[in-house]
Simulated assay, not measured.
Amino acid sequence: MTVSPALRLLAIESSTDTLSVAVGTGGPGAVPASYAGAGAAQASTTLLPAAQTLLAQAGWALSTLDAVVFGRGPGAFTGLRTACAVAQGLAYGARAGQPDAPGLPVLPVDTLLALAEEARWQRSQIADAPPLTLVAALLDARMDEIYAALYAVDGEQLRAIAAPVLVAPEALGDWLAGHGAPASGQGLWLAGNALAAYGERLQAVPGERLVVLPTAGALLRLAPGLLTQGLAVPAAQALPLYVRDKVARTTEERERAGAQR
């Protein structure tokens, strides 16, 4: 895909309890128009009106967008399905009287990559901030587990070291060490809402802390590079990334987990 230097993008991130929507170019220094509100089950009622309002504020018709970007997961199942469904619906809706047209490209982005980008960006806004060379993106997966991924930071670029997995809070330190994170924690940042959920159980894990969520703004910043890599897909091929394949434990599993603490 040939990427325009002045992209028109709509981004949707609803993998957590916070819904984030933004429109913008994703270019360096570009300030997107954005919306943040309650996510989870409430996202299904507010997401589409928020997207329509932001497009109107930007003066962009849906059909003029270059792509619809969404956080594909992992994260809250309901939020992921909502983001995917709305992204697909908007992509198809842009056909405007052309039922045989393919619709807009859709760009699915790993939620943990967006989280790592938000952490990188927030630290870059602080003068004389400690160096950040590794980001462990950590989302609360509930059920005493964490969605985790590890990224190397090189300037404004992120490179995946370990793909998203489920890990128990007590196993996080060993998981990071197994992927080359320094035992000293130097240059390593633990970022995400799992820090608030499992703070005491993560005390032994080395590294700086940053409580942060993935945002639609982070999706916009990532989008130009990902589009250049040809990672956009037709709407029908845009699917959530769950990592976990069920939403609740059996009574036996909960009792076993409690006994292992």
Rank of each mutant, 00 (worst) to 15 (best):
D128S: 15
G217V: 04
A183Q: 14
L115T: 01
P131G: 10
V135D: 00
L150I: 04
L188K: 00
W121R: 06
L220H: 04
T133I: 02
A148E: 04
P240W: 07
P130C: 10
D154M: 00
I161C: 06
D144F: 11
P131K: 06
D128W: 11
A216R: 00
S184N: 08
P164L: 08
W175T: 07
L210H: 14
A141K: 05
P206I: 12
A236R: 15
A114V: 04
V243S: 03
G230C: 13
A171P: 11
A223Q: 08
P224A: 05
L132S: 00
P131T: 12
L227Y: 12
L226N: 07
Q203A: 15
V233Y: 07
Q186F: 00
V165M: 12
L188G: 01
L115F: 06
A162T: 07
V243K: 01
V233E: 09
D245W: 02
T215N: 03
L176C: 03
E117T: 04
M143I: 11
A191N: 12
A232N: 06
E117K: 01
R123E: 14
Y242R: 05
L202D: 13
A191P: 10
I126G: 04
A116W: 05
L139V: 06
A148Y: 01
A238K: 00
Q125M: 14
V165E: 12
A236W: 09
L195P: 10
L241N: 12
A181W: 02
G173F: 06
D144M: 13
P108D: 11
D245H: 14
A137D: 07
W189V: 15
L219K: 02
E170C: 05
A218N: 04
A177T: 12
K246N: 14
W121P: 00
L231R: 14
A168C: 10
A232K: 01
A116Y: 03
E118C: 05
Q186W: 03
V233P: 03
D144L: 12
A137L: 09
L219R: 02
L132T: 02
E118G: 06
P169F: 10
A196D: 15
G217M: 01
L132M: 14
L202H: 13
L158Q: 00
L134M: 10
L202Q: 12
I161P: 03
Q203V: 13
L158D: 00
E156S: 13
W189D: 08
R221F: 08
V212N: 06
